[in-house]
Design a binder for these strands. Structure first.
Lengths: 186, 186
DNA sequence: GAGGGCATGTAAGACGTTACATGATTAT
DNA sequence: ATAATCATGTAACGTCTTACATGCCCTC
């Protein structure tokens, strides 16, 4: 099987106990979204592909009249996930429109650059709030189910957002200081 | 004109003094790549589009027998870039395979999770090295051409990579400590 | 009975990368 | 001479999001 970028999200989520495509999407949205997003348009076709490849099994499991497919990893699926986990990571991408604007911010006035820095900070504050909101849930799973991975990554995200906020504040202070020293520029 | 994600990279790079598609690609690769990548397959078609829309002008400007198109922003192009710069940013995406593996790392032994953390750290160390290597160039442009934006963003990237390395080291220490307290787990 | 959540899926299109094709110039 | 760099582009392919379609279940 030729793995795609969603292959291991799906396999990993099943390993963590997800039983339907819907649950995979929920968990991805509430916990993995900030570093690895996935949509239905990727998840459901990928599940079919993985089933054909024998890495996943599915069973019809309707709840009343509502249809449902219950999914599970096969031994081959566990194996495939494990092999991937043992390889060093290589994808590391970042797309930040705020930084792009900052990059071109010489076309702005000093005061406008300061506003921009403020807006960049606001984005990271918002990220921090979103992640902090799910912290209790992750903590609970950590304690009750022994799942340390999701909690570890969540803490990375929260600490990252806090670091970025602090960086912005520091630069805001520096730029304000420079503007005060050379008031003509703003 | 309906802007795409490459529209403003192109306009901004022209504003910073790039005169050919090739130069845009060079500058993007050496300085904006870590937070906003762009490929030839995006840049050249986008330049045509922007020229049709009247935001960019081009002129045949061969060097000897080697053909070349020299590009420039029009007033409308400057205006379009400026309006975008005045809007708050909204795209903020992150794709980190290392974090994804860490997320699923409960399927690993404690010692293997430590190896993984080490590999994640190595990625950020590598990023830091790449960015630090271009620092002198950015500094020079900052001083000589008064371009503060690119330098500001580069410092963000370097500080981010350093923060991430420190976070990994801290977690490595913590995990090693836990393993020592409960030696059976590793 | 209306709205929200559970649940599965597809289609169209936007987005992006890679690889290739071409050819001149410059440095070794 | 030959390799690297300057320079412009396209085609194919793969990825990803958005929007839509469908319908049941549960709570208010």
């Amino acid at each position: 099987v030729q793995p795609t970028s969603t292959t291991f999200v799906v396999l990993g989520m099943l390993k963590l106990g997800c039983r339907t495509g819907y649950e995979i999407k929920q968990l991805a949205d509430t916990s993995a979204r900030f570093f690895w997003a996935a949509s239905y348009g990727q998840i459901y076709p990928e599940l079919r592909r993985l089933e054909e490849a024998g890495l996943v099994t599915s069973e019809d499991d309707p709840q009343g009249d509502r249809r449902r497919r219950t999914l599970a990893l096969t031994a081959a699926g566990e194996q495939f996930l494990s092999e991937w986990l043992h390889q060093p990571p290589h994808v590391l991408e970042y797309r930040d429109e705020g930084l792009l604007k900052l990059f071109f911010s010489d076309a702005l006035l000093a005061s406008e650059r300061l506003d921009l820095l403020h807006a960049v900070r606001a984005q990271y504050e918002e990220l921090g709030r979103r992640l902090t909101a799910i912290r209790p849930l992750a903590e609970a799973k950590h304690t009750r189910l022994g799942q340390e991975g999701p909690s570890l990554v969540l803490e990375f995200g929260i600490a990252l957002s806090e670091w970025a906020v602090a960086w912005c504040e520091e630069q805001e202070g520096r730029l304000r200081g420079e503007a005060a020293r050379r008031p003509a520029a703003s």
